[in-house]
Computed example of a mutant assay.
Amino acid sequence: MVTGPRYGLDTQVVGVLALIGAASMFCAPAAGRWVDRNGADRVNLWCILATFAAAAVLAGGASGSWTGLAALVAGLLLLDIAVRCSQVANQARIFALRPQARSRLNTAYMTCSFLGGSAGCWLGIRAYAQLGWLGVCTLMGALALLALAAYLAGPRRQQARTPALPGSTQPDPLAR
């Protein structure tokens, strides 16, 4: 969309826009602390809500103006932070399943993560081809609502039983 007639940006500017995602890596340590304090379930809820908000903000990018470009930047940053923080929360959750099998659990988790990302790209391309940018944003919002429904329907775990990740500021409550 940004290289098309609406914005007319070149590939170098698109590359700079892609670097926005790099800023989210600085959120990983904070996300770990949030998981330690609030539990993975609560952090995931925040991430689902942030993803829904990102869909709404990104929809503003359809305007083609400088405010639309600002909406794209803000929405991309919000989405990348939500994805990064949910990844940290989900890894904390799976590592609690069998701490002695972290490598295998992480391999399975990342495989599923990449498969899900591939499916999301496939759906996003189809949505863009059929419905344009607002279709992509609507799809993202609908998927966030689906995730929220699954979250609300799912069981709540005892937050105090989630062991802290290595290097975390919280002691492992299961180590007693």
Rank of each mutant, 00 (worst) to 15 (best):
V2F: 01
G4C: 00
G4D: 06
P5W: 14
R6I: 08
Q12P: 05
V13A: 06
V14A: 02
G15P: 02
V16E: 02
L17D: 00
L17A: 04
L19Q: 08
L19K: 00
G21V: 06
A23R: 04
A23W: 04
F26K: 05
F26E: 04
C27K: 11
A30V: 12
V35H: 07
D36Y: 04
N38T: 10
A40L: 09
A40N: 15
R42S: 10
V43C: 09
L45M: 14
C47Q: 08
I48H: 09
A50P: 14
A50L: 13
F52N: 12
A55Y: 06
L58T: 01
L58I: 03
A59R: 05
G60R: 02
G61F: 06
G61K: 11
A62Q: 08
A62Y: 03
A62E: 10
G64P: 00
S65D: 14
W66N: 10
W66C: 11
A71N: 05
A71G: 05
L72A: 05
L72H: 00
V73H: 04
A74M: 12
L78N: 08
L79R: 11
D80M: 03
D80S: 11
A82L: 09
C85H: 11
C85N: 07
S86V: 09
Q87R: 15
V88R: 07
R93Y: 15
F95D: 10
F95A: 06
A96T: 05
L97V: 15
R98M: 14
R104I: 04
N106H: 07
T111F: 11
S113D: 14
F114W: 07
G116C: 02
G116D: 07
S118P: 05
A119G: 11
W122C: 13
L123C: 04
R126F: 15
L131H: 09
G132N: 02
G135I: 00
L143N: 05
A144F: 00
A149F: 06
A153L: 11
G154C: 06
P155R: 15
P155A: 12
R156A: 10
R156F: 14
R157K: 08
R161I: 09
T162I: 08
P163A: 07
A164L: 06
L165H: 09
G167I: 05
G167N: 01
S168R: 03
T169H: 15
D172K: 03
D172G: 05
L174Q: 13
A175I: 07
